[in-house]
Each structure stands twice: as C-alpha cells, then as structure tokens.
Amino acid sequence: MTWSRESLERAEAILQRYPEKRSAVMALLYVAMKEDGYLSDAGMAIVADLTGLTAAQVQSVATFYVMYKTEPKGRYLISVCTSISCFLMGSDELLHAIEDEAGIPAGEADDTIGVEHAECVGACGGAPACLINYELVEGLTPDKGRELVSWLRKALPDVINADEVQALFGGRTSFDWAIKEENGAVGPYPAFPVLGTAAENTSALEPGRG
C-alpha cells in the first residue's frame, strides 16, 4: 500500500513547510483522504511512516478532529450548520429537508452524498448555511436545500465551486462575496492548493447547468 507519486511529492513539500515533522501530520492526513476518498487505516499508517510516529499516535490525532473521516462519506459531503445562529434561522428544518431529499439521515452517506450536522461554520450572518465539501452556501431555505441535493445527484459536478452553488441555491450572505473564485473542492475534504486538493471549476457560474 502506497500513495501516488504526486501525493508523495506533495507530502515531501508539506514536510518542508514546518520546523518539525510531526507538525505536518494534519496536512498529510488530508493528502491521505485525497488518496482514498476518506481516511483509511492504510492512509494513517503511511502518515505515521512519513512523520516518524506510530500509527496509534496518528490515529489518536486524526480521530480528534471531525473533518478526518475514517469512513467513506460519498462524493459530496453536505454539512448543515445547526449551531445557535443557524438554529435560530431554521437550520433544523433545512437539515430535515436535505436528509429527506437525499434519503440519508445525518451522519450517514451513500456513494454519492453524505449528510451531517455541523457545528458553527462561521456563516452566522447568512444563516442558515451549509458546506458542500467544505465550500459554503449561505442563506438557504428548506426548498433550496432540496434543490441542491437533486442537483448534486443529477449534475454530479466534478468540482464544487462556492460561487456557483451560492448562485444556484444560496441567498443572503454574511458579507459581500464580490471577489470571484474559480477554485473548488474535488472531494469531501477542504480544497486547498497546498494540499493538492483544489481544482478549477470549468463550469463555474454557468447557472443553467444541470
């Protein structure tokens, strides 16, 4: 069991960014998720090798953080914020609508979609909000939530781009989203170029699609 050459090179570069190897664990765990689509035992073992830790130590770190998923969560992980501000603005109804439309109770996933409740995602001014593969959509309604699910199922976008999904399904935002961006997420882990997990969305801002 090993990683692709690209990921190993990526890992090498990530290790260079920190004064001590162990500090790279978190970033490497994301690389591991990108390799397998989720965080597998094999992935943790490789991270352990790369950082000189035991696999038990890596597992201990990984399971502390909720974004490292040790089980597959589908291609699109929908994290609905249900913390106080979103709760006040109807997040529970939004979550139920999404669960219902997807046919997936929070915490579970099929091959395509995973649904979960999340704690505050920092979008309280645009409540209720959710993340799709950690790309934000603000100002949702239960109906828009349903549309979002069916769009994901039908369009199967390669890249989740926040501007695009916000344009399609979002409403009020926490602040002005005037700066446009092409980058987006390719799986249920954050899209960050340093990790090699971001991709340009070629269909960005083509609302007609799907």
Partner: peptide, 10 residues
C-alpha cells in the same frame, strides 16, 4: 517510549 496505546476520538 512505545506509544502504541493512545486516546482516540474526543
């Protein structure tokens, strides 16, 4: 010096 038993989850 053999950290093979650890906490998991939180």
């Amino acid at each position: 010096g053999d950290p093979l038993i650890e906490f998991a989850d939180r």
